[in-house]
Computed example of a mutant assay.
Amino acid sequence: MHPSPLHGTAASNPAAHAVGPLLRDWRQRRRLSQMELALDAGISPRHLSFIETGRSRPSPQVLLALAERLSVPLRERNTLLLTTGYAPHYPERPLETADMNPVREHLQRLLAAHEPYPGLVLDRYWNAVLVNEAARSLAGLIAPELSAPTLNVYRASLHPEGLARFTVNFDEWAAHLLHNLRRSIEASGDMALVELEREVLAYPGVRAALDASRPESGRPVLLVPCVLDLPLGRLSLFTTLTSFGTPRDVTLDELCVELFYPADEPTERALRALRP
């Protein structure tokens, strides 16, 4: 049985004032009504209304149930708990720690098995934390400053001193990347990603690519390749993104694997020819 909505009033629990607007923001971002969210989370709409307006302090169980229904990233779930005065629920272990050795080894094996095609492990900001040799070869074509302190997929792909200068279908590929970045922002609400979007939109030709790439028919493009004119020849590549299923660690929740595949036979032959 859930606690009364009046349990822990705003006056006695100032944290209730802080968490309410955060939850309301996540609910509105997911385009859910109070009724829909409350019923899905197993609480009354009145209780949810009291939580959002700061009149009631939710228990950790209620808070996590709401966050689960709203698909709140694990890092932000910890923030909700801390804001309400509770301890964080999800651990965060850097990939370099001993506890994460098995995960890192699995990822390295995955990238090695993907050779001679490029593969990268990315963090929440699309920074490369692990790469295979094929991806490292592509990274060698961009200006060194774009790899410092770490290689970021959006900067490396859209900056004029990055892969943009080799990209034959730049407008189409840039628009594809920007739509992905916008989806990441909407899913996470991360202001650092908003700043990254603002940065790359200021690169020459990037903002114009959004309008230039819209198909006149209005029909969605099923598969967008990245077509590169490189010294070894023309490469046409498509990508897949893979994330961990039901992670219970913040670091794992934020990692994804991007694997590039040849979109045609000439690309496959060119990449296989590079393999020792």
Rank of each mutant, 00 (worst) to 15 (best):
P102M: 11
G140T: 11
L70R: 09
T79A: 13
T79Q: 08
L181I: 10
E115P: 13
E92P: 13
H176M: 07
A65V: 07
Y86L: 11
L151H: 00
R182C: 13
A135E: 06
F170G: 09
Y125C: 07
L178Q: 04
S59W: 01
S157Q: 09
L74R: 03
V168A: 01
L111F: 12
L66F: 07
E68Y: 00
L70D: 12
P73W: 00
P118M: 04
H179C: 09
Q108P: 11
W126A: 00
L82P: 03
Y117K: 09
W126K: 00
E145P: 12
V153H: 10
A87N: 15
R136Y: 09
A174K: 01
L107V: 01
A112D: 03
P60R: 14
L163C: 12
R124H: 04
R183N: 12
E96C: 11
I185F: 07
H176A: 04
A187G: 12
A174H: 01
P118W: 00
A98G: 13
R155S: 00
G189D: 03
R124A: 15
L178R: 05
N152L: 05
G189I: 01
I142E: 01
L95K: 10
G119H: 03
N127D: 14
R124F: 02
L74V: 05
Y86P: 04
P116I: 00
L120V: 06
A65G: 14
P160E: 07
S71F: 06
R55I: 05
E115G: 06
R104Y: 14
E145W: 05
V129M: 12
E172D: 13
S188H: 05
E105N: 12
L138R: 03
V121G: 08
Y86I: 04
W126N: 03
E68S: 10
L80N: 05
L110F: 06
E76T: 03
Q61D: 10
A65N: 13
V131Y: 00
A113T: 06
A156M: 08
V129S: 08
E105D: 15
P149Y: 13
S188I: 03
G162I: 00
